[in-house]
Amino acid sequence: MYTQALNNPAVEAGVEDEEKLAAFQARIDREEKIEPNDWMPAAYRKTLVRQISQHAHSEVVGMLPEGNWVTRAPSLKRKAILLAKIQDEGGHGLYLYSAAETLGVSREELVDQLLTGKAKYSSIFNYPTLNWADVGAVGWLVDGAAIMNQIPLCRCSFGPYSRAMIRICKEESFHQRQGYDLLVAMMKGTAEQQEMVQDAVNRLWWPALMMFGPSDKDSKHSAASMKWKIKRFTNDELRQKFVDATVPQAKVLGISLPDIDLKLNEETGHWEHGEPDWDEFYNTIQGNGICNKQRMKDRIKAHEDGAWVREAAQAYAAKQAAKKSAA
């Protein structure tokens, strides 16, 4: 069940062949898709493996904060919606690990990088889900921010990633609507329910803005990614799109957003917003968020507790294969 990566290219080190590089860039500029067996610069491959695997890890770790509410969902309908959403996120993890595997790295290696702390995942999942409205706020804000990030990735130059994103984006927008719908239902409810919604949004708003990464002046990876059309907009541009789309939704919902600097610039039509607390962001990325240690502990425990199950499946498959070849 754990396929080894099929193509394991020798890592091209150091200087790239100028001609190949120029031909590669020309293909990108013509908006051609790069496929796994095509020539690509080592740095392009490396960037993609890092980005796709981080994305995959985020989907999987992201199952935990929402999973926190599965047994406590307040109605059978909401429980079913929540379970189906978390199941989708697991499916996203699977497609993305598969997309990364086409670049010559195995899922086992990638999972190992996550569990040993070498690989990162989105900082947002290191925040706790503290009341039922968090489930709605995660759908609305976190899936909403993910969509802003991911829609341009549907046109990413790397074919398998682009195709995975097209499929994933459809489901993410569904999650976003369901999350919003949950909040709308609560806002129509009792004062206590409305307070839960406001509390959830107060806690998750800034972490959602941080999902777009550091501001452009501090972002390391942007330039090359833009040239290679892995990325098409800067972090700040995407963050602005998200704020512009979300502020009116907050108004319809009837809640306030916890940013005193938020105001509409009549000339540009954009909502100006305050700066996220970047110290908190870097602190979280470095492992000191409220739930970092808990999330890793949970993932490691699931992996270790499941070791005997995976071993059994492998042993059984090996026995079956031996029987077949003997027959």
């Binding site: 999973g67 499941g306 199950v309 995976r310």
Partner: peptide
Amino acid sequence: CGHASHLEED
């Protein structure tokens, strides 16, 4: 949910 031995089984 989120705790199975591998994603497929989850």
